[in-house]
Amino acid sequence: MPKLKKQRVGIIGCGVIFDRHIEAITANADDFELVALCDIDKRKLDIRAKEHEVFGFTDYKEMYKIMKGKMEMVSIATPNSCHYDQAIDALKSGYDILVEKPIDFRNKRVEEICAWAKKLKKKAYAVLQVRYNPTVGMVKEALGNNLLGDIRSVTLTQRWQRPESYFDSWRADINVGGRTLYEVGIHYMDIIQLLFGLPEVKSSATFNNKHKYVEFEDTVFSILQFPSGASGSLEVTIASEPSNLECTLSVMGSEGYIEVGGRALDKIERAMFLNQIFEDKWNKLVGKFGKSLEPNSYGTHAGSCPNHPTLYAEIAKGKGIDISEAINSIKFIERVYDKEIK
């Protein structure tokens, strides 16, 4: 597929993830150009707009109106509850969109965004950049080649740390930030459903072990069953100390075992096979993929691997992650909370 023409981009939201988008645009300067910024914090906006020599707006609707004909794509990096309205309004204003996670807290509203994009013949992309971790590509190819045989069990263990100051903002408001899985677990739950299908959630339990003044949980446990019949479990916590300890995906099959770990699903910890032929195939497969990037550091805490440059590069090729791809990860989260033991 041929590359698209150079796209002029406006970013809404100059918060913690803003720099990842700037890095991605800079890394793909032949394909993207930053032309406008928007943030309700005028002081922050003025600093960023001056730094990047672009137009600055405190009202995203004003940006949509004034930048008409001067901008093709909008990257939405605002607090979670803002994404839906800003995405719909961007599409109606004639722009393609790239939306940070979570697209919304309800899968039906993500479907509405998809419907508007289709109706208006605009592109709508999701920031699900963990899919570009080389480790994910390795496991996906191993499964495609049936190196593990029949899958028996899948386990995700995400033991991360978030300081109390993490919630000194909109993230503490359940109506704005959502709950822990929407803010922290979503990228890795997306990988589970991508590789193994959307699971049925048998039961869930939530706990508030550290952030007791916040109105929702910091720890989630769930029992799962996948479409193949394989069993599974999910553990997501932001109560670990002193830092992110692990994000581990363990896959047990009839022919072997693969464990992807590190702090952000960025390292192959173990790969063992009953069959030497399968082990040789695995070793050959691993050589095809590069090394994962170091996880994002935000000073007080760390996050996922910063694959935004790859994300933008794929968009330039016309192969970005369509926003419809985000629906099942939202469904997965909804299922976990629907089965929560009260």
Rank of each mutant, 00 (worst) to 15 (best):
A271Y: 02
S81V: 11
A326N: 10
S324L: 11
D39G: 10
D150H: 06
W170P: 07
V110L: 14
E215K: 07
P306D: 03
R109Y: 13
V16G: 03
T26C: 00
E72R: 09
E246Q: 07
S81H: 15
F57Q: 12
S75V: 06
H187T: 07
E62C: 06
N28A: 00
G15V: 14
F226Q: 15
S153Q: 10
K70P: 13
V201Y: 11
G287I: 01
W170I: 09
G149C: 06
P306R: 02
K317Q: 10
P102S: 09
K317L: 11
S169I: 03
E255C: 13
E246T: 04
R162M: 08
F196P: 05
A36D: 00
L274V: 09
D168N: 13
P242D: 12
P309N: 05
A27I: 06
L37H: 08
P306H: 00
L311S: 12
E111R: 12
V154M: 05
D173A: 00
I330K: 02
S250V: 15
M63Q: 14
I103E: 08
E141D: 14
V336K: 13
E259W: 10
I327T: 02
K118M: 07
V74W: 03
L181K: 02
D266I: 02
K339Y: 00
V16C: 03
K288P: 03
K6N: 11
L148W: 01
D104T: 07
K92F: 00
L194P: 06
E164G: 00
I330S: 06
K212T: 14
T155I: 12
G94W: 05
Y213P: 00
S297Y: 06
K5G: 05
M138P: 01
S203A: 08
